[in-house]
């Protein structure tokens, strides 16, 4: 290549890269941050716009659920744990973050059918923006939780341990992004996935300490808890929700024996989900 050939200026002919690895794809998505931002803005605007009260409806839902579930636990099942309502609310918002992210991710490709069929943009931006939007919603719900906490437990003072919420959020977000991409990739081809997911989530809701705490079952099950409790915590969402409660209400750092495997799981599922999604993404335009 001699310099004499560069007579005219302008962009140079470059090979089009069709496939890329996770690293290159993440760099590409980061370079298109304004796109991710625009997609998040769209999702949140659509979610909150249609009604007069907008965002308040979606923040009210966990409060109503909390009221019902606390009533049932306390008076029908006789659970006597201090500040049960606050613990249930914390469980509910972490659960809603989990559930909504997965359900929204599952059909994010199909919902953006026209875009995916017509124009190139980094496909992972779709599920990632779904998880990001739900993270923002989790943040808003967290403010509601804090307000309720101040109202219900006036002498509550958070300690530095509460800062653990941020790493917990990162772990949960990473896990949701990975699982979400896995679901987005498979649901686009097999629409049964979302039905299975909805049923699975219903079961998971009850075997995860959302409307009760791990302490509750330890007390209720007695001797059986000795062998059941460790197995029970294999559920990553159980560990995550219990950790939120621990750092916020018991002012202790999370139990690392439980949290570290969950963090490792989150990283693995993120990498696996991302890879599967990238592989599947070239078939999206033909499948939808």
């Amino acid at each position: 290549m001699s310099s004499g050939e560069q007579a005219t200026s302008g962009p140079v002919l470059r090979p089009v890269r069709y496939t890329m690895g996770i690293g290159a794809s993440l760099v590409e998505v980061a370079g298109r941050w304004d796109l991710v931002r625009a997609l998040v803005q769209r999702d949140l605007a659509v979610r909150y716009r249609k009604s007069v009260l907008g965002v308040f409806w979606s923040l009210l839902t966990p409060l109503l659920q909390m009221a019902i579930l606390t009533f049932v636990m306390k008076y029908a099942l006789g659970v006597t744990e201090p500040n049960l309502s606050v613990k249930i609310l914390a469980g509910l918002i972490a659960w809603a973050y989990f559930e909504n992210s997965l359900l929204d991710c599952a059909d994010c490709i199909i919902n953006n059918r026209d875009l995916v069929k017509k124009i190139y943009f980094p496909r992972p931006a779709l599920p990632l923006s779904v998880v990001l939007g739900n993270t923002i919603h989790f943040g808003l719900s967290f403010v509601v939780l804090m307000l309720w906490l101040l109202l219900w437990v006036p002498d509550y003072r958070p300690t530095l341990q509460a800062l653990w919420v941020l790493p917990l959020l990162v772990i949960q977000g990473l896990m949701l992004a990975g699982a979400g991409m896995l679901l987005a990739a498979t649901h686009t081809f097999y629409h049964d996935i979302k039905f299975v997911l909805a049923q699975l989530l219903r079961v998971l809701f009850f075997v995860t300490p959302v409307m009760y705490t791990a302490e509750t079952i330890r007390v209720k099950l007695g001797a059986a808890a000795n062998w059941l409790a460790p197995t029970y915590m294999y559920n990553p969402m159980a560990t995550i929700i219990e950790s939120y409660r621990r750092v916020l209400f018991e002012h202790q750092r999370p139990e690392m024996v439980l949290l570290l495997p969950v963090a490792a799981f989150a990283v693995v599922i993120f990498l696996v989900g991302y890879r599967v999604f990238l592989r599947a993404s070239w078939s999206f335009p033909e499948a939808i």
Binding site: L13, R14, P15, V16, Y18, T19, V116, K117, K118, I119, Y120, W282, P285, E286
Partner: peptide, 11 residues
């Protein structure tokens, strides 16, 4: 880049 070629190259 909406579709990926089965074979061949694009510049």
């Amino acid at each position: 880049r909406v579709l990926r070629p089965t074979s061949g190259e694009v510049y």
